[in-house]
């Protein structure tokens, strides 16, 4: 059933137009890569602050308020461009284990980012950030690195993309 949906998606005329022309396909890849760099770099700033090894003299909520809008904006660009790239070759991506694993890692990383942003005002009320906050920041950082690694493993393992 998933493959049938993938097949329909792949045959959509807008998807074909966007992914089969050289310049639009390159444009999608440029948006996907650039937004990924800004996304992961921005999340890393907040995570490193939560862990306590960046800007220790700065309030963690200030970092969060400044950085998170860019995290969500770059995530939106990354997801939209990534979805269109996926749709162009959906029947090949859907059954690929490495791609499924990548999506799982990205999903967990996004959930961790939501939890970190949600918890920061609570953690910030105590004079020292609790240990569980630092552990969560570290796990989040590792998952975002994992997302990058899986992003490059998909073409390396399956030859797609």
């Amino acid at each position: 059933m998933l493959l049938q949906m993938a097949d329909k998606l792949q045959d959509n005329s807008i998807i074909i137009a966007l992914t089969s022309t050289g310049w639009t396909a390159a444009g999608l890849a440029i948006l996907h890569y650039y937004s990924m760099f800004v996304l992961v770099g921005s999340v890393a700033i907040v995570d490193l602050r939560v862990i306590g090894i960046i800007g220790r003299h700065h309030n963690v909520s200030d970092f969060s308020r400044r950085i998170f809008p860019w995290v969500w904006l770059s995530l939106a660009v990354n997801l939209i461009s990534g979805f269109i790239m996926f749709a162009g070759d959906a029947t090949a991506y859907v059954p690929t284990r490495a791609f499924q694993f990548k999506l799982g890692v990205v999903l967990v990383a996004i959930i961790l980012a939501v939890i970190v942003q949600w918890k920061i005002p609570v953690w910030d009320q105590s004079p020292v950030l609790p240990a569980r906050a630092k552990i969560l920041g570290l796990i989040s950082l590792l998952f975002w690195f994992g997302a990058i690694l899986m992003g490059v493993e998909v073409p390396a393992i399956s030859g797609i993309g």
Partner: peptide, 26 residues
């Protein structure tokens, strides 16, 4: 090795561009 080297390159760029972007926007 090749995907790990690629991931190192991309992680470095992410840290570099993320921190650059934050200061530029500021």
């Amino acid at each position: 090795a090749y995907p790990f080297v690629q991931a190192t390159h991309f992680s470095g760029i992410s840290l570099w561009l993320g921190t650059n972007f934050a200061v530029d926007i500021s």
